[in-house]
């Protein structure tokens, strides 16, 4: 039946089962491939995945003492993604809130944002190279440019539609200035929606960043994924993909927690 609840034990069991199914499917594919050709490196066995992938990725380089994945992690997440998201979210917040508050700004910003949101930033890679080169600024621009049109619009909608006029009138009656109303009423009322909007943009931001690193980088996840898949080092590729997934999952979790912590009144 539609929406009929199931016991918690079932819920956990089914979740685990789907993961086991994934692992089983991989084992089968790998086994079949290796049966056909024992030297195949495209779907390595679990032991190869461990020795050629995990161990090599996490072991410090003999000469330099550097750990691949740590370097890539620093570059991709701690520097590029963080900076890009900060710029993107900052701009979206400012533009989105103001658009939700003032009609002239709404009329001015909405058409270009609606239009730009329809151009995939990945398709514009060449334009970014020309405009901002291919260094650190390029990654930040790429991410910011990719998420601002969507995020600013969702913040604008939240600010405009989710805050009842009565609340604003009440604030005015209590003597709030415009800035106070924006911060204490509109911003706080829409904060959970903003955090959710940001959470949903982490995925696209990673798409843009990996695409940019694929083309122009000498360190980072996109760079290593491209290099290793060209060298047919699929063990390393799979390990990188798993780490990417794990980091994305973690960011999602953190932002959900943040929302629950900052806006307990909003509910789940």
């Amino acid at each position: 039946m539609i929406r009929k609840p199931i016991p918690q034990s079932w819920r956990v069991g089914l979740g685990v089962a789907s993961f086991l199914l994934l692992i089983g499917a991989y084992s089968y594919l790998s086994h079949r491939q290796l049966e056909e050709n024992p030297d195949d490196r495209s779907i390595p066995s679990w032991s190869r995945l461990w020795s050629d992938g995990v161990v090599r990725v996490f072991t410090p380089n003999e000469h330099t003492g550097e750990v691949w994945i740590w370097q890539d992690f620093q570059a991709t997440f701690r520097e590029r993604l963080l900076a890009g998201m900060l710029v993107g979210v900052g701009v979206s917040l400012l533009v989105g809130l103001l658009m939700g508050c003032y009609d002239p700004l709404e009329a001015f910003f909405l058409p270009p944002l609606a239009f730009l949101a329809k151009i995939p930033p990945v398709a514009m890679l060449a334009v970014f190279f020309v405009l901002v080169g291919s260094g650190f600024e390029m990654y930040v621009t790429m991410i910011a440019f990719g998420i601002v049109p969507v995020l600013a619009q969702s913040i604008y909608h939240a600010a405009k539609d989710d805050v009842p006029d009565e609340l604003l009138h009440k604030a005015y009656t209590l003597g709030a200035s415009q800035m106070e109303s924006i911060y204490n009423v509109i911003y706080k009322q829409t904060l959970p929606r903003i955090i959710d909007g940001v959470r949903l943009q982490v995925g696209p931001a990673m798409v843009y960043l990996i695409a940019a690193e694929w083309i122009a980088a000498d360190v980072g996840f996109g760079y290593h994924l491209r290099l290793q898949s060209r060298l047919l080092d699929m063990s390393v590729v799979y390990v990188y993909l798993i780490v990417l997934g794990a980091v994305g999952f973690f960011l999602d979790f953190v932002l959900t927690r943040l929302r629950l912590w900052l806006c307990p009144w909003y509910g789940h």
Partner: peptide, 17 residues
Amino acid sequence: TNRDPGAAAQALQTKTD
């Protein structure tokens, strides 16, 4: 230093970075 050849050529042609 690693860079996609197309992107490297473009960077030199457009005098960026």
